[in-house]
């Protein structure tokens, strides 16, 4: 695989990519408007400047591995949402805002699959079809596609895991232009997670609140999802010391409680832990290693 492929993949669907890579021009254009116009400057200077350096160079195996790992997770997410929408019978997602949101998320996951697949080229891992998956997690969630609430609970687990998984690979991607694309996927997964959490709150009629950000559980545990079966998804999310800095009550700010300190930093999850979680949703013989 070649690093530049990821740009070419973007170009296929975004013909203005190279124009966008000129941030100075965009900066002048956008000087007085931070709204819609800033959107034109979607790509970072760093990507643009690294682009030429990267051209023609092969990607380190470690980076290819990270992208394939990400691709596997995106397949898992895409199949989950797509089956809920297109399966027979489809998951009873209410029409209107909920159905539109799940459709948007499904479309994003498919876009991520296509982007990563295209970037990896011949180095891309085999596709993961729906038939390789088991979203009941071996019977843990037997109603995952028939009960809307269970579907959302599992969706939250996928999104929060996705956010953690990308973060967990940051070390491999330091200084690599692929990092920027990974970050751009990562923050979208976080947006998805926040919205799914809000959907769960709405479904409960507001009687159970799932904050858009990962907080402490009702008993102070790391898992705030209300689903103890997914404790592994949230293991370590209750960390309150960041890069050696204790966040609780930092510099006399007593409002930064333990819960706030937990909420304001999302934690990474290492590859092995993510694979353990992902494998719960894959058929025997189809599991990741």
């Amino acid at each position: 695989m070649n690093i530049v492929n990821i740009l070419e993949e973007i170009e296929k669907v975004d013909g203005e990519i190279y124009e966008r890579l000129n941030p100075r021009r965009a900066a002048m254009k956008d000087f007085f408007n931070m709204g819609k116009k800033v959107a034109l400057a979607a790509m970072p200077l760093a990507l643009g400047s690294v682009f030429q350096k990267a051209y023609g160079q092969s990607t380190p195996q470690a980076v290819t591995d990270v992208l394939n790992f990400a691709l596997a997770l995106e397949y898992l997410e895409y199949n989950f949402y797509n089956h809920a929408l297109a399966g027979t019978p489809a998951t009873p997602i209410p029409a209107g805002a909920p159905l539109a949101a799940i459709t948007l998320i499904r479309d994003h996951e498919l876009a991520h699959v296509n982007l990563l697949k295209g970037a990896l080229g011949a180095a891309a891992r085999p596709a993961i079809p729906y038939s390789d998956t088991d979203y009941t997690a071996g019977g843990t969630f037997p109603t995952v596609f028939t009960d809307y609430g269970t579907f959302l609970a599992v969706a939250q687990g996928f999104e929060d895991t996705g956010v953690r998984a990308y973060k967990g690979q940051a070390g491999v991607l330091v200084g690599n232009p692929v990092l920027t694309t990974a970050l751009q996927i990562h923050s979208v997964e976080a947006r998805h997670a926040a919205h799914i959490r809000a959907m769960r709150t709405t479904l409960s009629g507001g009687t159970t609140v799932y904050k858009p950000w990962v907080s402490l559980g009702s008993a102070g545990q790391a898992n705030d999802s209300g689903v103890p079966q997914v404790d592994a998804v949230y293991a370590g999310e209750d960390t309150t010391v960041q890069a050696g800095v204790n966040i609780v009550g930092i510099n006399g700010n007593t409002g930064v409680t333990k819960a706030a300190a937990v909420e304001c930093f999302d934690e990474p999850l290492d590859r092995a832990s993510v694979i353990t979680i992902a494998n719960l949703f894959l058929q025997p013989g189809k599991k990741l290693s």
């Binding site: 900066a27 979607a42 479309d107």
Partner: peptide, 13 residues
């Protein structure tokens, strides 16, 4: 909507 990517902005922007 085509790439599913969030913004990445240069510091000067």
């Amino acid at each position: 909507s085509s790439t599913g990517l969030d913004m990445a902005l240069a510091p000067d922007v």
